[in-house]
């Protein structure tokens, strides 16, 4: 299994990362090393083994539908890079 630079470039776009040509080369190499390492998991024969849906064997964890206190708006907006009195502001999104 080997990732091409095109595949890594596409993943970078999906992750909103802007990579220089040099970075693309570096990360393609590093990502491939990681993928190859994980690829060892493909070696054992898993015929007849149930796929694992979750790492812990706990099921049905719920909370009751009880309303608690909301964050004060000032606290909610405290870390916003840009904001006005009521809302987070982001570069204009046009549909």
């Amino acid at each position: 299994m080997s990732l091409s630079t095109e595949e890594v470039a596409k993943v970078a776009v999906l992750a909103r990362l802007r990579l220089s040509p040099e970075e693309l080369q570096t990360f393609t190499g590093q990502l491939n090393a990681i993928v190859d390492y994980v690829a060892q998991l493909q070696e054992p024969d898993t015929t007849g083994v149930e796929p694992l849906a979750h790492g812990v064997e706990v099921r049905n964890v719920f909370r009751d539908d009880v309303r608690g206190e909301a964050l004060p708006r000032e606290a909610a907006l405290a870390n916003a890079p840009k904001r006005n009195a009521e809302s987070f502001l982001v570069p204009a999104v046009l549909d």
Binding site: R67, G68, E69, A70, L71, R73
Partner: peptide, 27 residues
């Protein structure tokens, strides 16, 4: 129609002023 959100405790009411119905999980 629930009192609280899917994964956290703040309310779900419609029409409240912006960003007054949040909690750390929904943020």
């Amino acid at each position: 129609q629930t009192e609280s959100k899917m994964f956290s405790w703040c309310g779900t009411e419609f029409g409240l002023p912006p960003n007054t119905q949040t909690d750390p999980v929904s943020l």
